[in-house]
Amino acid sequence: MTMDLPQLSLLGTTALLFEAPGETSLTTQRRIWALALEAGLLPGVREAVPGMNNLMITFAEPPRHRGQLEHRLIELWHTVEPLPAAGRCLDLPVVYGGDGGPHMADVVAHTGLSVDDIVAIHSAPTYTVYALGSHPGYCYLGGMDQRIATPRRKVPVLRIPRGAVSIGGSQTGVSASDGPSGWNTIGSTEVAFFDVERTPPALLQPGDCIRFKTIRVLR
């Protein structure tokens, strides 16, 4: 088996999942955005939804024979021109630790780093919005330093609040509304990522970016 082939898998009869090969990267993501534009136009496809270096294609009508669609997706993957990541950048003030960061201790325990190290490492990069998902307006961010990667929780938490800044595996993000999550929450911020009355309803879109500005570190 070669490692540079994309993987296709089924999500029941509702959708197909396309997983790009290789390490997670912005270059790959820019190709995913391009593939999404093309795949969304294919016959029988309802929506093409980018994830982190992957793409979900939902069926308007699940085809009896999937071969042609799958073949076309692979073909497009090899021919699309990556889209640019040229969006706007949002600065978010973050209070790390304390009541707003209940799982900071778990990240400390897993990484062996100090709270100050984790905060410094987490707030250093400019994070690119790779995709929207999870819940209305939520942004999946790329570019987290792998030294603070921490596995998702063994059992998801039933409710984490809007504005929670959290780490799940090798990713980080900010909750756009209260809800369940399997990620480790290390801090909190204030921002309205989604307003259904607004056009478009989501504050950010793929290609935009986020910077975290440390306001306070609570221990």
């Binding site: 999500l11 029941g12 509702t14 959708a15 999942l17 997983e19 997670t24 939804v49 994830g51 982190m52 270096n53 992957n54 793409l55 979900m56 939902t58 995709a131 998902g133 999870s134 999946y140 990667a149 596995p151 998702r152 929780r153 063994k154 059992v155 998801p156 799940g168 595996g169 090798s170 990713q171 399997g182």
Partner: peptide, 24 residues
């Protein structure tokens, strides 16, 4: 072996298995 996946689209009906081993 333990798996940490990149976030991806899912649909109603998907059976996830968190690290605790009890499906959702």
């Amino acid at each position: 072996r333990p798996m940490e996946l990149r976030s991806h689209g899912i649909v109603p009906g998907v059976i996830q298995v968190p690290h605790g081993g009890q499906p959702i």
